[in-house]
Design a protein around this nucleic acid. Sequence first.
DNA 1: CCTACCGATCGGTAGG
DNA 2: CCTACCGATCGGTAGG
Lengths: 199, 199
Amino acid sequence: MPRRSAIEAQRTKETITRRASDVASLEGLERLTIGRLAGDLEMSKAGVIGHFGTKEALQLATLEDAIARFTEHVWLPAATSPAGVERLRTIVRAWSTYLTDGTFPGGCFLTAASFEFDGRSGAVRDRIASALRQWTEVLVDEVRTAVDAGELPADTDPEQVAFELQALAAGATQTAQLHHDPASSRRCRHGMQRCLGLA
Amino acid sequence: MPRRSAIEAQRTKETITRRASDVASLEGLERLTIGRLAGDLEMSKAGVIGHFGTKEALQLATLEDAIARFTEHVWLPAATSPAGVERLRTIVRAWSTYLTDGTFPGGCFLTAASFEFDGRSGAVRDRIASALRQWTEVLVDEVRTAVDAGELPADTDPEQVAFELQALAAGATQTAQLHHDPASSRRCRHGMQRCLGLA
DNA sequence: CCTACCGATCGGTAGG
DNA sequence: CCTACCGATCGGTAGG
């Protein structure tokens, strides 16, 4: 039974994608090269790419690692809150913190990858788009629940609110990474709260 | 007198940077390679890079072309409006249109370049940061003027408003390019108007 | 998981 | 502005 080596191979694979998502958050999914990753991890190029087959498969696995980290840091803390405004409050807090707290050394991986791949085609771009769309749908559902419960005004446009929340997250990533502005997280949180009428 | 050839050389240079900023808005400033640009323009690689010397100088010249296009499409229409809320109204209209009207085939070049270079160092990153900071200062000044004139509430935070406007522009770029969402420009404009209390 | 290698492409230069 | 070329690095493979 090759159980032992299969477990070790899985662990190596996770080490690679973790490192890859860190590097890619700083430099981009495309500048992440197999050779550099091998050097960082003190492995051979063949040892790295052998786990995935192609660079695109490595990028997709890296993306899954990043999506899991987003879910863990932003969704998980809110999942146990009651649906509606209370859950939105928790999401706003966790999300605005996550954007600047060093979960990724180069800021939110998904935001960066979205801008990097939005002009291309292929499986990587499609997966980025589906992940962001799914998160938008979560936000729309929460806002709708809050409206139905009378916690938010009846004329609230859930799609518009979700758009603005996503935009504020992208804006915070921009000012935090480009200007190292320490107010980024606070401005993001305040904007999101105002957007939800929680200010 | 080499006037004729100098003028022609200048025109060739402008042809190169215009093409470069179009391609880079779709694929990024780094994926823009000298060889591909030469192929697109039916020139030799040496003929392209000879005008600039290094790829970094080509990227900087491309950046200046993109900054000029932003200024022309977003600032110029507002420059003749009276300072304050009326000028902000014009900026919001011009900006939200520019983001999706095909000025750049891949959406706002400066937004994309910001996310592409925010994890690096060097002259290109510095120029992107200074251009965005300058635009933020323009916005802060206009909001401050509007507050001083009593057109906006006295407790308005100009820095916060400028942050949110920039964020909404980034968000519109994201949904327009990644999801081809036709509502992007409208959502951006509505968000900006709400942010300024003009809704 | 390794070494050794492939063809393609990168930025850039020499010489004209 | 061109042709012809340089060393470096890319993604990927053969063979073990």
